[in-house]
Write a protein that binds this DNA or RNA. Structure first.
Lengths: 345, 345
DNA sequence: CTGAAAGCGCTTACAG
DNA sequence: CTGAAAGCGCTTACAG
């Protein structure tokens, strides 16, 4: 015996809510779906008359092409993945902003992978990102677990490591040497004769690389090894204040405070002023990042400028070249950095 | 006569680079593609023996499911779109971070739409985002052009407007009243008897709403209308300094400086100290956002705290409810705010 | 618990 | 310049 429901008209499957598809548009315009597709992807191939008819149908129906279907069909998703540790206070924002801005008019969007606190989280994010088959992946400051790294390579998705110069690159690189930054700051410190140094630093690999480059130069010049106060995440204003306060309270008498961010440097400056210590006469302060406020402080802040926007531009250019099937000979670009010496020492 | 190329073996189309697909895995595991699909989406429906076979094949082949195909087929993309003006110095970061974090383990990713400087740019970003058929759209601080707004509504994608309480919501809302924030600050100002006020404000609709709420209370209490220095984008440290400097240089003698961001307030504090003006004795300063450094400043900064993380949590909860097909009765949530009175007045 | 097969909404090589 | 039709890699209602 048939079920009651089986006797109802022709309902076989639970129907999806009707979507305006390319078929709807094609029918309304009296053309084939191929023509509607060309209207969006190769408009120069249509006659004016055809263009007009499709345009009208598209407008009337409010049609928005389904990019999932398009991407699946064409193997181009117009999606760029940005892999960063967190989005909050990210020093990489300018790079991502630039990538988004410069690729937006070609229809690209940026999808985020926030690798977060641990490897499992990072791994899961990376895998789902690979599953979305982006046309490019930008890695900035994120640690890629080994398994994810292998799948990344196997995926053959154009990948750009940025804000660093990895010794064993996955694919393309647009960055600078953190070690070299540390050495440059170290040269400056030794040149100005500041022997006793407090370093306020994040614990990430890149901040540590800067710290090592810095210490290396000091030791080479016969200076004592710097004191270090380390913080798990990127250093904040409060970190700078408290690190300086604790160091001084413990009897430290530094001649220079080097911070892994301008925020921490700002905090250091304020703590020193609060204690009536003169900058740079008694103690010099150096930051990192050359934030918008660095030049506005009193005294203005010596810092290391990284051109995050240029990193974004170069990365976008790399991806567009790959998208056009061009080979890239020089796949590693060192954008360098600039030590900007200002009033703080 | 046949073309030469036509006689070569069976080449009909330019083949794509071979991808490891669900078919590859199914064959290797000796099961159907349906079973492989279930391995990922409904593992509890498989026997242990089957699970093991599929698992092995997946590992051996390094298979990563194509989420475009999955999304197209299931009409669930596991993609959440975050629509914000810019990613640089975004006050909305905490909200997006929270959404990403809380939805990550369910396989969701966040795709960005940076609406940017003008309506055309915003429109294009929104349209391509709609084309990606996200399972939810979070709007924060972005202005949605009318045409895009219509398509958004037509798309039937669950949409949440955040960080505001729009009078004519698109769908769901998780935010607070900027007007009410302004009034609260105004009440505080009148209570403390500060009659002459300088407002340092961004020109965006929300900053302006706060400013209006603020001015309204002052006028109602018989206080004079505040002076206003307005900036196009969100206010920076430098903006705060220069606005205060210009105002004082022009002969202004305010008793209170209200800023549309903590950064500007920080700049205002520094400019006042630089001029030997005591805070809060001579002039009080109030910020907005309760940034991490607000409580660390000297004097500590009075500010308005918005719980951006809570906005993200509530938004994620809304989306998950919708994803499970639940109806939401109360679609507008006012998360409120908190005026935190500290040392600066 | 598992499989065969239809279908998701596009793109594109061919043919005309 | 335009169309018919195969194919992209999945999911899922049915059937067994």
């Amino acid at each position: 015996m048939k079920k009651k429901t089986a006797s109802r008209k022709d309902i076989k499957r639970t129907p999806r809510p009707a979507e305006v598809t390319i078929d709807t548009v094609a029918e309304a315009a009296g053309v084939s779906t191929a023509t509607v597709s060309r209207f969006f992807n190769a408009p120069q191939r249509l006659t004016q008359r055809t263009t007009l008819r499709v345009q009208t149908a598209v407008n009337d129906l409010g049609y928005v092409p389904n990019l999932l279907a398009g991407g699946l069909s064409s193997a181009r998703t117009q999606l760029i993945a940005a892999v960063i540790p967190t989005i909050t206070n990210s020093i990489f924002s300018s790079t991502i902003q630039e990538i988004s801005d410069s690729l937006a008019e070609r229809g690209y969007n940026v999808v985020l992978a926030l690798t977060g606190p641990n490897d499992e989280h990072a791994e899961r994010q990376l895998l789902s990102i690979i599953g979305r088959r982006p046309d490019g992946i930008i890695l900035s400051g994120a640690v890629v677990p080994n398994n994810a790294r292998a799948k990344l390579i196997a995926s053959a998705i154009p990948t750009i490591e940025t804000w660093d110069l990895p010794s064993d690159p996955i694919d393309m690189v647009v960055g600078f040497s953190h070690e070299a930054v540390g050495r440059a700051v170290g040269m400056h410190a030794t040149k100005t004769g500041r022997r006793k140094v407090l370093v306020v630093s994040a614990a990430g690999v890149r901040a540590v690389a800067r710290r090592h480059g810095f210490a290396k130069v000091l030791l080479e010049q016969g200076f004592p090894e710097p004191s270090v106060t380390s913080f798990a995440a990127s250093t904040t204003y409060g970190n700078g204040r408290s690190a300086v306060a604790a160091h001084l309270d413990a009897g430290g008498r530094p001649e220079l405070v080097v911070c892994s961010s301008d925020w921490a440097a700002h905090g250091a400056l304020d703590e020193l002023r609060h204690r009536g210590i003169r900058v740079p006469r008694d103690i010099a302060v150096i930051g990192f990042g050359d934030s918008d406020f660095a030049s506005e402080l009193n005294p203005s802040l010596t810092s290391v400028k990284i051109d995050g926007k240029a990193i974004g531009q170069q990365s976008a250019a790399f991806l567009m070249k790959r998208a056009q099937g061009q080979k890239i000979k020089e796949r590693i670009v060192d954008v360098g950095f600039e030590l900007i010496i200002r009033g703080s020492g």
